[in-house]
């Protein structure tokens, strides 16, 4: 596999006169868990649609594992698994029957369906009709279907939405295991905590363009406000910018005089960073 599992070069997708994706350049390395974030309408879902062959690009090139998505779709198709944002199971079939159907399409043995049901901890509900599943169970079944054929690339749209904390942790563990096994995982989400906890790198898109690309830690470093909030003994609040001499001196004097009731550093706030980068609030 090439060092870059996914290469997006000059991607442009236009709806009428509106450019949903406007010259996006992005390389996603093999074996990384990549988060694609952005406000609604930023172009991340459209990008995912191009990657999954649901929409042809207006311009630009997209390759997955070296195959051009537009020209070599037949070769690309078995290489990825996809978890959409809404479930799309045969509700009248059991979980096991759903997976066995897709196992037959992918040409994998039926026992693989049982393995992935175990993996997502749905083995106890394997023979229950999906119509009786909760939203979280359906989401986990989507993940089971996506990893059924052990694909080298996984796309996930809001993978932990509707999941309880334990199930969300399970999904993150499965994704990390896939990455450790060499797979490339691309997820889109609005959950900044998930991005922070799970992703190796994050791409921030806004108005169809990439506006930031780095690891969550580096983004924190680059965009955390170096400000200390102090609540004085008399109850008044004060903020000190520690990047300035005046701020550092004022904070030191207050603490030395024992007039500070509490001191808090401002932690990395992805929402604030996001506002700064995109000029748009998260929705």
């Amino acid at each position: 596999m090439p060092s870059h599992a996914i290469r997006i070069a000059g991607l442009r997708v236009v709806f009428g006169s509106f450019p949903a994706v406007d010259g996006l350049d992005l390389d996603i390395r093999a074996g990384e868990l990549f988060g694609l974030i952005g406000p609604n309408g930023a172009g991340k879902s459209t990008t995912l649609r191009v990657l999954t062959g649901q929409r042809r690009p207006t311009a630009g090139a997209v390759t997955v594992c070296g195959y051009d998505v537009a020209r070599e779709w037949a070769a690309v198709r078995p290489l990825f698994g996809y978890v959409p944002d809404r479930d799309n199971h045969f509700a009248e079939f059991t979980g096991r029957k759903n997976l066995r159907f897709f196992a037959r399409l992918y040409g994998v043995p039926p026992r693989r369906a049982d393995e992935v049901l175990d993996l997502v901890e749905l083995d106890g509900a394997a023979d229950v009709a999906v119509a009786g599943y909760s939203l979280g169970m359906r989401k986990k079944l989507l993940l089971a279907r996506a990893v059924l054929h052990d694909p080298p690339v996984l796309y996930l749209d809001e993978p932990t939405a509707n999941l309880d904390p334990r199930s969300a942790a399970l999904v993150r563990r499965i994704l990390r295991d896939r990455v450790n096994a060499g797979a490339t995982v691309v997820l889109t989400t609005h959950d900044m905590d998930e991005v922070d906890a799970a992703c190796d790198r994050v791409g921030v898109v806004c108005r169809g363009k990439l506006v930031a690309l780095d690891s969550p830690a580096a983004l924190k470093q680059a965009h955390t406000e170096r400000v200390v909030d102090v609540v004085r003994a008399d109850g008044r609040r004060e903020a000190f910018a520690v990047d300035t001499d005046r701020g550092r001196r004022g904070l030191a004097e207050l603490v030395a005089a024992g007039r500070a009731a509490s001191v808090h550093t401002r932690e990395f706030d992805f929402r604030a960073t996001f506002l700064r980068l995109t000029g748009q609030a998260f929705e």
Binding site: T52, G53, Q54, A74, R77, P78, Y82, P84, R86, D87, N88, H89, F90, A91, F102, L105, Y106, G107, R145
Partner: peptide, 14 residues
């Protein structure tokens, strides 16, 4: 309507 055609179309089935 339920996205099932899409799921099949994204599988190896043409």
């Amino acid at each position: 309507e339920r996205g099932l055609l899409l799921a099949q179309a994204l599988s190896p089935a043409s």
